[in-house]
C-alpha cells in the first residue's frame, strides 16, 4: 500500500473504539443489574428456583395422611383387596380438606348412587379389553347384576363395601355357611 493513501486522521477510529467500550461496559452492568441474583449459580438458570420448587405445598397426601383421623376406615381398608386404591382419587385431595395448621378447611363431597358405580367401572368394566386380566376382577355391567339375580337398578355399593369389596360377601357366605366361590 502507498504511504500517501493512508489517512493520518484516526479520530473516527478512536470514537468507534470508545463507543464500543461504553456499550460493552454499559451492557455488562445492565446485565448484572437486570438478571436475578442467583442466575448462573449452578448453571444457566436462577439457582434460587430450586428452593422455590422444593417449597411448593403438597396438595395430595398419602393414604396414611387420611388414616391419621379416619381410623375405622383404615382397619377395613388396609386388609381388603382395595388396599392399594388411593383415598384421594375417589374422595378428593387432602389439601382441600385440611389446612396448613391441621384444621379442617373444607368438606370433601360424598359420592352417592350412580357416581359410586361409575367410579367402580373405571377399573372393573369388562368391555374395556385393554386391561390386563390377571391384576383385577372384571365384571360386565349390568350383566353381573343379572347373574347375581339382583335388581338391575342396584348400585355396586349396595352389595359391595367399597372400601373392602369382599367384606360383606365373605360375611354373608360365613353366615349362610356357603363354600368359597358359590
Amino acid at each position: 500500500m502507498h504511504k500517501e493513501s493512508r489517512s493520518r486522521y484516526n479520530a473516527h477510529l478512536i470514537k468507534l473504539i470508545i463507543a464500543l467500550v461504553v456499550v460493552g461496559v454499559g451492557g455488562y452492568f445492565a446485565k448484572q443489574a437486570l438478571s436475578p441474583d442467583t442466575m448462573g449459580q449452578y448453571g444457566h438458570y436462577r439457582g434460587a428456583d430450586i428452593e422455590d420448587q422444593k417449597n411448593i405445598a403438597l396438595k395430595l397426601g398419602t393414604n396414611d395422611s387420611c388414616f391419621q383421623c379416619h381410623q375405622p376406615i383404615r382397619t377395613i381398608h388396609k386388609d381388603g383387596v382395595h388396599k392399594t386404591v388411593s383415598c384421594e382419587v375417589c374422595h378428593g385431595s387432602y389439601g382441600n380438606h385440611i389446612g396448613d395448621n391441621d384444621e379442617k378447611i373444607g368438606t370433601l363431597p360424598v359420592k352417592r348412587g350412580d357416581e359410586i358405580s361409575q367410579l367402580c367401572l373405571r377399573c372393573h368394566n369388562k368391555v374395556i379389553q385393554a386391561r390386563p386380566r390377571e391384576f383385577i376382577k372384571m365384571v360386565g355391567y349390568p350383566e353381573h347384576l343379572e347373574q347375581m339375580q339382583v335388581n338391575p337398578t342396584h348400585n355396586c355399593s349396595q352389595c359391595h363395601m367399597v372400601h373392602d369389596p369382599l367384606l360383606w360377601i365373605r360375611q354373608a357366605r360365613e353366615m349362610m355357611r356357603m363354600p368359597e366361590g358359590a
Partner: peptide, 17 residues
C-alpha cells in the same frame, strides 16, 4: 403390562397441580 387405564394418575395429577 400392569396398567389398567383407570386414570387415577391423571386425577391425582390434576388435583396436585
Amino acid at each position: 403390562t400392569a396398567c389398567i387405564g383407570c386414570g387415577s394418575c391423571c386425577v391425582a395429577d390434576k388435583a396436585e397441580y
